[in-house]
Design a binder for these strands. Sequence first.
DNA 1: CTTGCGTTATGACATATGTCATGAAAAAGG
DNA 2: CCTTTTTCATGACATATGTCATAACGCAAG
Lengths: 231, 231
Amino acid sequence: MKTSKEIESCNNCIYRKLLFESLNEEEYRLVNNSRTEYIYKRGEIIRQEGEPIDSFLYLRSGLIKLYKTNKSGKDHILSINKPGDFISLLSIFSNSVYKYSITAIEETKVCEVGLSALQKVIVSNSAFALRVLNKMSRVSDDIIESQFEIRQRQVKGRIAYFILFLADRIYRKREFRLPITRREIGELISMTTENTIRTLSEFRKDGIISMDGKIITILDYDRMQSISKTG
Amino acid sequence: MKTSKEIESCNNCIYRKLLFESLNEEEYRLVNNSRTEYIYKRGEIIRQEGEPIDSFLYLRSGLIKLYKTNKSGKDHILSINKPGDFISLLSIFSNSVYKYSITAIEETKVCEVGLSALQKVIVSNSAFALRVLNKMSRVSDDIIESQFEIRQRQVKGRIAYFILFLADRIYRKREFRLPITRREIGELISMTTENTIRTLSEFRKDGIISMDGKIITILDYDRMQSISKTG
DNA sequence: CTTGCGTTATGACATATGTCATGAAAAAGG
DNA sequence: CCTTTTTCATGACATATGTCATAACGCAAG
């Protein structure tokens, strides 16, 4: 499952400042000693629903999806997360097991910090606790907001919303490679694969995007925004 | 807006134990001095989207809805919350203004604690911080989970899910008074009022529930569960 | 008590979405 | 390289959901 291991110091990590800035030497050592860095290949499962929560996961590079499989075997994707996101913190303090599965959708570097070490530092360092609280509420907020936005749109609006999410928040470009299949887009926006494909084709026919396999270029950004808002 | 004010000591509050147990005298005094208790009548707006977050809100009795109004003027309800729930904590640490509006759907008692007092205690008392972290993640988790469950069902399943939510988690009875209108149920499950009404009528015709205005009785609990799971 | 307005209710019809079938294209695996 | 599997694509049709119209009912304000 975990294909490769490669420990680096947090000192070189651009996220150290974000999170560990307020730690003193001892606290930092405590965190760092219980820290491991793993690399997951595309498609590898990082954590599975029901597994005990043993550590705090922090995404350093790559992309992951958070999802759940229902009884019929159908997956429903909750969110796509990017570097800098806390990918497990959601339930770390209220659940003992993962409520959702996590899979790497491209090669992904994950920092894993032992839960007990993290809790010790939270107890000893209140500035750090506030920082975690802040970051954590932001991630939950983002998930709630995106689900909320998705649910009040129909297919065209949902796909436009997702394409703009990728363009604006993930890649910051108007041309990018879809990181997931059309089936997975459907699992994310709660639509069938066929309708997802059909709608993307329609956007292409209407000249709003061009498509070459997984490469998408937004040709008419304004119209895409308008569809995301109204449809 | 706030119709009545009535300060009680936290000592008599059944929730004190839940949250304020770990506070020492001074911390407790700090919280209590910045604490006010308000009573909101049915339909009264407790907080409005966009208002600055000044305090931490804690629901002592009654029921509230969390919702957002979109540009077309249509409301979308995010959750119905019951006593014991943190109703503002969601965005308290990551936003300076409320992202959602809060309205009392029946007479509701709300405890309001000044945000700065709360933050001071979080910084000074790490056990309390952990408790807040735990409770907070649970509330966010609940919202994410219910949205997640709703979105993968169609109308019948969504309504069955909601009816069972009321029966099992809010009233703990099989007969209860719907606290909201059918339009609001639609706003909660993202369906039109007509389809919501139609589906409830259908449940009645099929002998799954009986209805007398807003009074609902679940006659066939098993079938209701089965619809909630499959439909 | 009456009036007015929102809620509940239902039908007819339009539109959106799902399902099933089929095939081409692309990716994965030996 | 070839084979196998998955993804992408599209059509025809079934079903679910939305829209519009209409009416009875109930609650609340005067």
